[in-house]
Amino acid sequence: MISSSLFEVLSFGAGGWGAALLKAALTTTALSIAGFAAGAVLGGLAAFARLSGGALGAALADGYGTLFRGVPDLLTIYLLYFGGSVGLTVVSHWLGGQGFVGLPAFATGVAALAIISGAYQAEVYRGAYLAIHRGELEAARAFGMPHPTMLRRIIAPQLLRYALPGLGNVWQLVLKDSALVSVTGLVELMRQAQVGAGSTRQPFVFYCSAAALYLIIALLTGALFRRAERRSLRGVRIA
């Protein structure tokens, strides 16, 4: 019974859920990419603050990391969803606005994923920076290389090389965390599966399909990260 109805339920025609699930998978991908990219900025800033931001900056960055790696991601998302609008409303009142200000579900999701992944990415960037050979920086400085050039030619390429494996892990974490954004009502893959399971009463079919789509996205993007890693290792002797 289940195998025959499976075809109908997941079909792409009218009344079928195939197109809706694929569209939701695209939303999940877009949400994760945007969250990861914004998290890279936050993580980069936090890593910079910890490495050279002075005592206060380092303490703030440390607190940020401890907080968001220690609190369940579901709670972070809830807090941002309910708290974010309050914050925005306060800001808009300062700017002379009135009434309430809402952040769309997609933006809330991106912000939540950025804050969570930023806490993890900061650790990755910090570790990668510390792995750069000090001698190379000293040599660059001895040549009188200006700081921006040093950043572009010496630090950035190596930082990326050392950070890539860690970033791959964080990316996988972001992709899976994006499922939790379903609690804000955004119709991403997990939400769509819940909606389908509820209206067709075929939860097994829908949760299996969603799991399979997550797995496909994870495997494809994982392969991309491995290719990037290999590329970043060009010219490096591997023991």
């Binding site: 009434g99 952040l103 997609f106 991106v110």
Partner: peptide
């Protein structure tokens, strides 16, 4: 996304009781 956010901000500012 940015457009949505901005429009949400402007809309919020315009509404009043």
């Amino acid at each position: 996304l940015a457009a949505l956010t901005i429009s949400a901000l402007m809309w919020g500012a315009a509404a009043s009781a």
